[in-house]
């Protein structure tokens, strides 16, 4: 797995192909839109989805925490699929999460799905997290600079000689950075959608997640052929 460097507001950030952001200078790891307990949120409404999404998502996150050993982990909002999600966390998953976060500061940025702090988990809950020239918030704001945001679950279609290949992606124009959604049950929104494209009036670059590395392309912010799903 090789991470790719990206400079925002003069800071050198590393984009990891697993879909997380590492800021080496601050030993900070940032992950967006985990949507933990999405399965049980649907189950409560009568759709008995597989109850393995939290386990799956955390199973992808823990090796990254072990590899980067960050001082601080910023959860960039929508960490739980709904406000009561933290309460539904299974005992085993809760214990594993607490253990994995030991020795680190967890910063829970509020999301639109989970505006309240997660009950019974270590760390601090904030509306947004400012650090030096950067601000970490869930919903990107118009004309912001030095912003790291989630919320939109960006994905993009890259052109290849055998047709487009669709993957979740980072999006950046050097002023702001959008993170892909990390959760196992999170779909994506094409970067051609006005909700994403509108944030990058001067164009942007997308970094598609690959098995071992990122694939960088200029973003097709005019509406690509891909339906948002």
């Amino acid at each position: 797995m090789s991470a790719a460097p990206l400079h925002i507001a003069g800071e050198r950030l590393m984009l990891d192909p697993a879909g997380v952001l590492h800021w080496p200078a601050r030993r900070l790891l940032c992950v967006a839109d985990l949507h933990l307990e999405k399965g049980s949120a649907f189950a409560a409404r009568g759709r008995l989805l597989p109850p393995y999404d939290t386990r799956e998502t955390l199973g992808r996150l823990f090796p990254l925490l072990r590899r980067y050993r960050p001082q601080r982990v910023v959860f960039l909002g929508d960490s739980f699929h709904d406000d009561a999600g933290a309460g539904r966390l299974g005992a085993a998953e809760r214990a594993a999460l607490v253990q994995a976060l030991a020795g680190m500061e967890a910063v829970w940025v509020a999301g639109n799905h989970d505006p309240s702090p997660p009950a019974g988990l270590p760390g601090v809950a904030v509306a947004e997290h400012a650090d030096g020239p950067l601000v970490f918030r869930h919903v990107p704001q118009a004309r912001a600079t030095g912003e790291v945001a989630g919320h939109l679950h960006p994905k993009a279609a890259a052109p290849t000689r055998a047709g487009g290949v669709v993957r979740p992606c980072f999006v950046s124009d050097g002023r702001r950075l959008l993170l892909p959604a990390f959760g196992a049950f999170t779909g994506g929104l094409d970067v051609g959608d006005p909700a994403v494209a509108g944030l990058f009036p001067r164009g942007a670059r997308v970094f598609l997640l690959g098995a071992e590395r990122l694939y960088s392309f200029p973003a097709a912010l005019r509406r690509a052929g891909a339906p948002a799903a």
Binding site: A157, G163, G164, V166, G203, F217, A220, A224, G225
Partner: peptide
């Protein structure tokens, strides 16, 4: 860094695989 139009010119529209 910024050339959103270039690729579209080179490759035309990008169809997602499967459609």
């Amino acid at each position: 860094e910024h050339f959103a139009e270039v690729l579209a010119e080179v490759t035309g529209k990008v169809a997602p695989r499967g459609t």
